[in-house]
Design a protein around this nucleic acid. Structure first.
Lengths: 222, 222
DNA sequence: GTCTATATCAAGATAGAC
DNA sequence: GTCTATCTTGATATAGAC
């Protein structure tokens, strides 16, 4: 079974028949199942999510799921693929909203805001990804670790540019810095409760911590 | 079933009988089961850990486990209790190793080192705690969230002292700061691989990031 | 305290009618 | 494409001999 099998279905162009609706029913059902799976995985984790839970949420039957996916694993694989796609495009969008002449610091700040927004959004796909990643079969984990590492490329580029501009001190290890920052952001799903502070306020605090630290200002070396 | 049922067994003093070894066999077996449980939970997560895996690792029988614990849940509860105990005492020890006149910054730095050491140690209990927390039954989660919050008291005290000393800028939100820091540290278990950098080197980078940020030094306001 | 055997149950997956 | 019925497997938990 290919990891991408579920995603390989494309809306194939067909001879124009005015009466046909643009979205086929089967596509809609498949989408409902995926949405339901993301919903259930987010709330119950991978191991405790039953196909019957997913079927119920998708308003269909457990056995009907097998018409669309060949196994439980195929479903989770597709959910994770979509989650990664969403995260990457979200962070990329946040960065490219910055004006052309923006400094590296401004672009990193924008990326931090984008990442917090997606992590703390009510998006079931990305939340499910965080929650279930270390419960899925090893094979899938290995595959998606590669995807994750590819997506980290955007951060590496950002950090390299920041160093070149002098926005990151020369004696800081860029890899560790990136991993510490991502951890700070990703872990927020464990404690964030809407209400006291907005997502953007938290992102501001994090960006400030990232560049300036929590301590008082200190003079540059003479 | 009380959450503490498993821990309630104490080495009860008994009339001195020189021949008796100080550690009863049953205590040793129980400890072996707990060690094995921590080992398996760490590697497989909660849901995928089978009692038979634990029994095998503990060199006993699945059914024998029920002589020591009344359920799977009782085992995990005891593992988590021990994990919390270890973490708290580790961080506390790191702090109290500092000399009496140490600054808040020095004590926080020491605590950061202590926390990284326990998170990235090869201790199965604390690693298992990180891995399985969001897979355990809700009732247990609620209980241990309270324990976690109690343990966070040490960080709150540290931060309050730092603010009083001016080591943390006045416009930083202390709660968010603490949660961001803990996330940065806790997430490290996801990416740390022994080799390139030591745990203490990572802790140094984190402490520096925490107080001074990754950016270049900036002048204090005049 | 430990072992063998087994009851019980839940969940993924499949068959085949409609 | 969807439904009912069922197969199959694997895991927790218990009974009872030793």
């Amino acid at each position: 079974m290919s990891i991408d099998s579920a995603s390989a279905r494309e809306a194939r162009p067909r001879a124009a028949k005015p009466k046909k609706p643009p979205i086929k029913k089967s596509e809609a059902t498949r989408a409902r199942i995926l949405d339901a799976a993301a919903y259930v995985f987010r709330r119950k984790g991978y191991a405790h999510a039953r196909l019957s839970d997913i079927a119920k949420k998708a308003r269909t039957q457990t056995s009907s799921i097998y018409y669309y996916f060949e196994s439980r694993e195929a479903i989770v694989s597709e959910v994770l693929r979509i989650a990664n796609e969403k995260t990457a495009s979200y962070v990329n969008a946040a960065i490219s909203e910055q004006p052309v002449g923006a400094t590296a610091r401004e672009r990193i700040t924008a990326a931090i805001h984008g990442h917090f927004r997606i992590v703390l959004s009510d998006n079931d796909y990305t939340s499910a990804h965080m929650r279930i990643f270390d419960q899925i079969p090893e094979k899938l984990q290995e595959h998606f670790l590669k995807v994750l590492d590819q997506n980290a490329g955007i951060w590496r580029d950002l950090f390299d540019a920041a160093r070149a501009e002098g926005a990151i001190a020369p004696d800081v290890d860029l890899s560790v810095l990136r991993l510490l920052l991502l951890g700070m952001m990703n872990w927020s799903i464990e404690w964030f409760k809407p209400g006291r502070m907005s997502v953007d306020q938290i992102a501001d605090q994090a960006a400030r911590l990232f560049f300036d630290g929590a301590g008082p200002p200190r003079a540059p070396a003479p």
